[in-house]
Protein backbone atom coordinates (compact mmCIF):
# COMPACT_ATOMS: atom_id res chain seq x y z
CA UNK A 1 0.00 0.00 0.00
CA UNK A 2 2.83 2.41 -0.72
CA UNK A 3 1.67 5.92 -1.40
CA UNK A 4 -1.78 5.42 0.09
CA UNK A 5 -3.22 8.60 1.58
CA UNK A 6 -3.13 7.16 5.06
CA UNK A 7 0.57 6.62 5.05
CA UNK A 8 1.50 9.90 3.48
CA UNK A 9 1.35 11.67 6.81
CA UNK A 10 3.28 9.64 9.34
CA UNK A 11 3.78 12.44 11.84
CA UNK A 12 0.73 13.94 13.52
CA UNK A 13 -0.42 17.06 11.74
CA UNK A 14 -1.83 19.72 14.02
CA UNK A 15 -4.50 20.76 11.54
CA UNK A 16 -5.83 17.23 11.31
CA UNK A 17 -6.14 17.07 15.07
CA UNK A 18 -8.09 20.34 15.10
CA UNK A 19 -10.40 19.20 12.35
CA UNK A 20 -10.88 15.84 14.06
CA UNK A 21 -11.98 17.68 17.21
CA UNK A 22 -14.29 19.82 15.10
CA UNK A 23 -15.86 16.71 13.54
CA UNK A 24 -16.42 15.37 17.04
CA UNK A 25 -18.07 18.64 18.10
CA UNK A 26 -20.31 18.67 15.00
CA UNK A 27 -21.37 15.07 15.59
CA UNK A 28 -21.97 15.72 19.28
CA UNK A 29 -24.11 18.79 18.54
CA UNK A 30 -25.96 16.79 15.90
CA UNK A 31 -26.65 13.96 18.34
CA UNK A 32 -27.79 16.45 20.97
CA UNK A 33 -30.21 18.06 18.52
CA UNK A 34 -31.56 14.66 17.44
CA UNK A 35 -32.54 13.98 21.03
CA UNK A 36 -34.66 17.15 21.27
CA UNK A 37 -38.43 17.02 21.22
CA UNK A 38 -38.96 19.48 18.39
CA UNK A 39 -39.03 17.92 14.92
CA UNK A 40 -37.27 20.89 13.41
CA UNK A 41 -34.38 20.53 15.80
CA UNK A 42 -34.20 16.90 14.69
CA UNK A 43 -33.77 18.20 11.16
CA UNK A 44 -30.95 20.51 12.23
CA UNK A 45 -29.36 17.57 14.00
CA UNK A 46 -29.45 15.55 10.79
CA UNK A 47 -27.85 18.41 8.86
CA UNK A 48 -25.05 18.66 11.44
CA UNK A 49 -24.45 14.91 11.33
CA UNK A 50 -24.26 15.01 7.53
CA UNK A 51 -21.70 17.80 7.70
CA UNK A 52 -19.68 15.92 10.30
CA UNK A 53 -19.52 12.88 8.02
CA UNK A 54 -18.49 14.99 5.04
CA UNK A 55 -15.65 16.70 6.89
CA UNK A 56 -14.59 13.35 8.32
CA UNK A 57 -14.26 11.76 4.87
CA UNK A 58 -12.35 14.82 3.71
CA UNK A 59 -9.94 14.71 6.64
CA UNK A 60 -9.47 10.97 6.88
CA UNK A 61 -7.93 10.89 3.42
CA UNK A 62 -5.19 13.23 4.68
CA UNK A 63 -4.86 16.97 4.37
CA UNK A 64 -2.27 18.21 1.88
CA UNK A 65 -0.25 21.31 2.54
CA UNK A 66 -1.10 24.39 0.50
CA UNK A 67 -1.61 22.83 -2.91
CA UNK A 68 -4.89 22.19 -4.64
CA UNK A 69 -5.70 18.94 -6.39
CA UNK A 70 -5.65 20.62 -9.80
CA UNK A 71 -3.17 19.75 -12.54
CA UNK A 72 -1.27 22.86 -13.62
CA UNK A 73 -1.29 24.27 -17.18
CA UNK A 74 2.16 22.97 -18.06
CA UNK A 75 2.17 19.87 -15.89
CA UNK A 76 1.09 16.36 -16.88
CA UNK A 77 0.38 15.10 -13.39
CA UNK A 78 -0.48 16.43 -9.96
CA UNK A 79 2.34 18.08 -8.04
CA UNK A 80 3.88 16.23 -5.09
CA UNK A 81 2.13 16.68 -1.78
CA UNK A 82 -1.27 17.42 -3.23
CA UNK A 83 -4.38 16.40 -1.33
CA UNK A 84 -6.24 13.30 -2.49
CA UNK A 85 -8.64 14.29 -5.29
CA UNK A 86 -10.70 11.12 -4.95
CA UNK A 87 -11.70 11.98 -1.38
CA UNK A 88 -12.82 15.40 -2.59
CA UNK A 89 -14.90 13.76 -5.30
CA UNK A 90 -16.47 11.50 -2.69
CA UNK A 91 -17.31 14.44 -0.46
CA UNK A 92 -18.85 16.35 -3.37
CA UNK A 93 -21.11 13.41 -4.13
CA UNK A 94 -21.99 13.02 -0.48
CA UNK A 95 -22.84 16.73 -0.16
CA UNK A 96 -25.21 16.53 -3.12
CA UNK A 97 -26.89 13.43 -1.69
CA UNK A 98 -27.25 14.83 1.82
CA UNK A 99 -28.62 18.10 0.41
CA UNK A 100 -31.27 16.21 -1.55
CA UNK A 101 -32.28 14.02 1.36
CA UNK A 102 -32.40 17.00 3.74
CA UNK A 103 -34.63 18.91 1.33
CA UNK A 104 -36.98 15.93 1.18
CA UNK A 105 -36.86 15.62 4.95
CA UNK A 106 -37.74 19.30 5.40
CA UNK A 107 -40.85 18.95 3.24
CA UNK A 108 -41.80 15.73 4.99
CA UNK A 109 -41.49 17.29 8.44
CA UNK A 110 -43.53 20.29 7.27
CA UNK A 111 -46.30 17.95 6.09
CA UNK A 112 -46.15 15.94 9.29
CA UNK A 113 -46.34 19.17 11.23
CA UNK A 114 -49.36 20.33 9.27
CA UNK A 115 -51.14 17.00 9.60
CA UNK A 116 -50.58 16.56 13.29
CA UNK A 117 -50.69 20.32 14.02
CA UNK A 118 -47.85 19.64 16.40
CA UNK A 119 -44.10 19.72 15.93
CA UNK A 120 -43.43 17.50 18.94
CA UNK A 121 -42.09 13.97 18.63
CA UNK A 122 -45.00 12.74 20.73
CA UNK A 123 -47.23 13.40 17.73
CA UNK A 124 -45.58 10.39 16.10
CA UNK A 125 -46.56 8.00 18.86
CA UNK A 126 -49.91 7.05 17.34
CA UNK A 127 -48.26 4.85 14.75
CA UNK A 128 -47.18 2.49 17.49
CA UNK A 129 -50.46 0.74 18.19
Amino acid sequence: MAGSPGERCNGIKLMEVFIAIMVGCLAACGARMLLQRSLFRVLIGLALLAQAANVLVFTAAGLGKGDTAVIGVDAKALAEGHPDPLAQALVLTAIVISFGVLAFCLVLLKRTHRRTADADVDALAQTES
Binding site: G30, A53, A60, A61, V101, L108, R111, R115, A123, Q126
Partner: peptide
Amino acid sequence: FEGATKYVVINMISSFFFLSGLGLLYG
Protein backbone atom coordinates in the same frame (compact mmCIF):
# COMPACT_ATOMS: atom_id res chain seq x y z
CA PHE B 1 -46.26 10.93 7.29
CA GLU B 2 -45.65 9.93 10.89
CA GLY B 3 -44.31 6.54 9.86
CA ALA B 4 -42.28 8.04 7.03
CA THR B 5 -40.69 10.61 9.35
CA LYS B 6 -39.26 7.88 11.55
CA TYR B 7 -38.12 5.92 8.51
CA VAL B 8 -36.40 8.89 6.87
CA VAL B 9 -34.70 10.14 10.03
CA ILE B 10 -33.31 6.76 11.06
CA ASN B 11 -32.07 6.08 7.54
CA MET B 12 -30.25 9.40 7.44
CA ILE B 13 -28.54 8.47 10.68
CA SER B 14 -27.61 5.15 9.11
CA SER B 15 -26.15 6.99 6.10
CA PHE B 16 -24.09 9.11 8.49
CA PHE B 17 -22.59 5.98 10.06
CA PHE B 18 -21.91 4.39 6.70
CA LEU B 19 -20.27 7.48 5.21
CA SER B 20 -18.10 8.02 8.30
CA GLY B 21 -17.03 4.38 8.25
CA LEU B 22 -16.06 4.34 4.62
CA GLY B 23 -14.24 7.66 4.97
CA LEU B 24 -12.10 6.24 7.77
CA LEU B 25 -11.53 3.03 5.86
CA TYR B 26 -10.48 4.94 2.75
CA GLY B 27 -8.09 7.00 4.80
